[in-house]
């Protein structure tokens, strides 16, 4: 798994660390960790898709907005996503374009777990490591 959940950090919430060789990979791993909190990923199918475009003045804010957008779609459109195709560009500002695949929240069918309220900036990091990129995120439960 390109992510792991951290014990004993912000104990009422859920913290994870995600890694990737590239920025799109670490954004994908972070999205998978977020979704894994809410549903058993094995039970989620990529039956519909959405396009997401985001911009931000820095990389931290871009990752925050990316995860916040997925949380927003969970409540507003009742959708959870399990497959991600992401492109990230650095220009005058950071830009993300993604196609995301998933399915609608169906109580009878999906192995749902915990609801995520929000992505927090507590201990929030996205940084370069020898193997690529690492992010640490605390989610409000």
């Amino acid at each position: 798994m390109p992510y792991r959940f951290l014990e004993d950090v912000a104990i009422a919430d859920v913290a994870f660390e995600a890694e990737g060789r590239t920025l799109p990979e670490v954004f994908e791993a972070s999205a998978l960790a977020l979704t894994e909190v809410m549903v058993d990923l094995d039970g989620l199918s990529p039956v519909l898709s959405r396009e997401i475009t985001l911009t931000a003045e820095d990389l931290e804010t871009l990752l925050f907005r990316w995860l916040a957008e997925l949380i927003y779609l969970k409540d507003s459109a009742c959708l959870l996503f399990c497959r991600f195709q992401i492109a990230i560009r650095e220009g005058t500002e950071w830009e993300l374009q993604a196609t995301v695949w998933g399915e609608g929240i169906d109580y009878g069918k999906l192995p749902l777990k915990l609801d995520v309220k929000a992505v927090t900036y507590h201990l929030f990091v996205i940084e370069q490591i020898p193997a690529g990129w690492r992010a640490r995120v605390v989610l409000d439960i």
Partner: peptide, 18 residues
Amino acid sequence: SRGFGHQVGTDYLDLFGP
């Protein structure tokens, strides 16, 4: 306040940085 309050918090946390 469910998703409504969560989004208000998210929106303003984002705005308060600048």
